[in-house]
């Protein structure tokens, strides 16, 4: 049997629980299930509006916050049971690229710093020449040269350069999975394609899977294999990206996809979220039942 790389079961995160009783509870993510295969690398899109739980999911997988219940299994082992050494391995193998390339760099240090701390903590190599080769190799992959970026301070580089350096850093660590939390939303359109191409290349040539978090359907359509649509923390539709986007079934997905403006016609529609759907916000609900609407395409039918 093919061992899964990452398996997420019934993952739920409720904010404002336990000690803060008066505080209103907010269910940021609920009953999230997903499997990433260990043999065939994939790009999986997590899409949804702001506040739908996309970034909560990223933070949960990266271990920045703990799940309220549900498990994250990495190579068949529960992430929450990892000891220090295992956690360090997990940290190296599951990397991330964040949304804002300007705030991710410590303004006090040169860009080189992010490579140095990763090298040092993960003990990649002690040899100076080897270090330089590793960094140079990673930077070349994203179309940059070490001499042009490494000795610069973050504010001296453009957003596109900074984001590519981020990807180079993630690549240098030879991870199995990269969580890309809206990696292109702050980058101008001309550089967007370049970053997406690098992601595709990393997937195809180096076998790195991606969890691509976005609210942008066109880029998701372009690069991803599977898509999960989140609505108020709930998965409402999932499956093959092409099938889901071409043939949406859930009411919310339909609205969302219909709202994408196209370049050749004037957008006449308007988004109206029905009262019914809005009142659900932030409440824990029973596990949703998915209907298979067509092969490799499931939806919660309301």
């Amino acid at each position: 049997m093919d061992q899964s790389l990452l398996e997420v079961n019934d993952l739920t995160k409720i904010f404002g629980e336990a000690s803060q009783k008066q505080k209103k509870q907010v269910v940021a993510l609920q009953h999230f299930n997903a499997v990433i295969s260990g043999t065939t690398p994939k790009i999986i899109t997590i899409a949804g509006e702001s506040g739908s739980g996309k970034s909560t999911l990223a933070n949960l997988i990266l271990g920045f916050i703990k799940p309220s219940f549900g498990t994250i299994m990495y190579k068949g082992q529960d992430v929450s049971s990892f000891d220090k050494g295992e956690m360090l391995t997990y940290r190296r193998e599951v990397q991330a690229v964040f949304q804002d390339p300007y705030s991710i760099y410590n303004p006090y240090y040169c860009v080189e710093h992010i490579f140095d701390i990763a090298m040092h903590n993960f003990k990649l190599t002690d040899d100076k020449q080897k270090k330089r080769d590793l960094i140079e190799d990673a930077l070349n992959l994203v179309g940059l040269k070490g001499e042009n970026v490494l000795r610069n301070y973050p504010h001296q580089l453009s957003g596109g350069q900074l984001q590519r350096v981020m990807i180079a850093r993630a690549y240098m660590l030879k991870p199995n999975l990269i969580i890309a939390d809206e990696p292109v939303s702050m980058i101008d359109v001309s550089l967007r394609a370049m970053i997406l191409e690098i992601m595709m290349k990393l997937k195809d040539e180096y076998g790195i899977s991606f969890i691509y978090i976005t609210h942008d359907f066109s880029t998701a359509y372009q690069i991803s294999d599977e898509i999960y649509l989140l609505y108020h923390g709930m998965t409402v539709e999932k499956g093959n990206t092409v099938k889901v986007i071409n043939n949406p079934h859930h009411l919310y997905t339909k609205d969302l996809i219909a709202s994408i403006p196209t370049i050749d016609e004037k957008w006449e529609g308007h988004i109206e979220v029905t009262e019914d759907l809005e009142s659900d916000r932030g409440q824990l609900k029973p596990t949703p039942t998915f209907m298979e609407v067509e092969p490799k395409h499931w939806a919660v039918l309301s």
């Binding site: 920045f64 360090l88 964040f98 991710i104 410590n106 303004p107 006090y108 903590n121």
Partner: peptide, 26 residues
């Protein structure tokens, strides 16, 4: 909650290094 602190955590930096090497210089 600054992003660069997140990045240092992802890079496996121990707490004292994040405190005194990432935050303190700023």
């Amino acid at each position: 909650h600054a992003d660069y602190v997140k990045l240092a955590q992802l890079s496996g930096s121990p707490d004292q290094e994040i405190m005194f090497k990432e935050m303190m210089p700023n």
